[in-house]
Design a protein around this nucleic acid. Sequence first.
DNA 1: CTGGACCCTGTAGTCCCTACAGGGTCAAGC
DNA 2: GCTTGACCCTGTAGGGACTACAGGGTCCAG
Lengths: 130, 130
Amino acid sequence: MYPIVALAEAAGAKVETIRYYERIGLLPEPGRTRSNYRSYSEVHLGRLSFIRRARDLGFTLDQSRELPELAESRNSDCGIVDAIGQDHLRDVERKIADLKALRRELCDLIGQCQKGAIAECRIIGALSPR
Amino acid sequence: MYPIVALAEAAGAKVETIRYYERIGLLPEPGRTRSNYRSYSEVHLGRLSFIRRARDLGFTLDQSRELPELAESRNSDCGIVDAIGQDHLRDVERKIADLKALRRELCDLIGQCQKGAIAECRIIGALSPR
DNA sequence: CTGGACCCTGTAGTCCCTACAGGGTCAAGC
DNA sequence: GCTTGACCCTGTAGGGACTACAGGGTCCAG
């Protein structure tokens, strides 16, 4: 049971953002203590972390809402879930490709400054196997 | 020399967004035709495409502004350029890792629907060597 | 029992677009 | 030569996603 500041820290969000998400119905209303303070569970933490991660990656709030709902609706129509999932997957693939291109450019830039810093780039390459 | 609609299409942006970027000084003012229509060059296209890509990946406009400026300032202080570049690089690495985790989740989700659709996932794996 | 850290509910402001309104430009076809 | 429709212009207002107060309650260590 986290108070709001603890949740904020754990999920990498601001307190105001959490209250905002609750207001627009993105985050379920938490329980309250006797003194009317919000009290969050692990479920809230998971959901909030996911949303923050998705937002940081350039997804809209609607998309961030859709993704976990998709996962929770395992028993509903597979065709729809599958189609939406495929869409998001394509989106993710494109973003990964774009980021890799950007990494390449940054690497080149840094390489030009630190002459003979190709080692640096090799480290970065090693950081991302697969 | 592109008119504004052509630039918008080529860069994947909206016409209004282009004018907005010009207003806030993010995109250099283009030349004008006799009838006062905007006329863009390849340089504009490159810059706009970069900004749109960066925005789509969750970078702020300020970051999107900083990155190409970094690249253009090859001759200025290497230490600073290098430090900022390293910062952005770390950011990019994190985003790639997050996206890969997200891809994994989506893949699992889709896999559960399309029973025995691991082939699909294998294809996706092949799409992203390295 | 008081100071400081924490929490509450507003509401207003910021950033980044996006959508008109109201009007000029221009090439094609009648 | 004149109209019609696609294109362009400059505003300004609206929307999504926060962010920052103001004004006030709660809690507990000293």
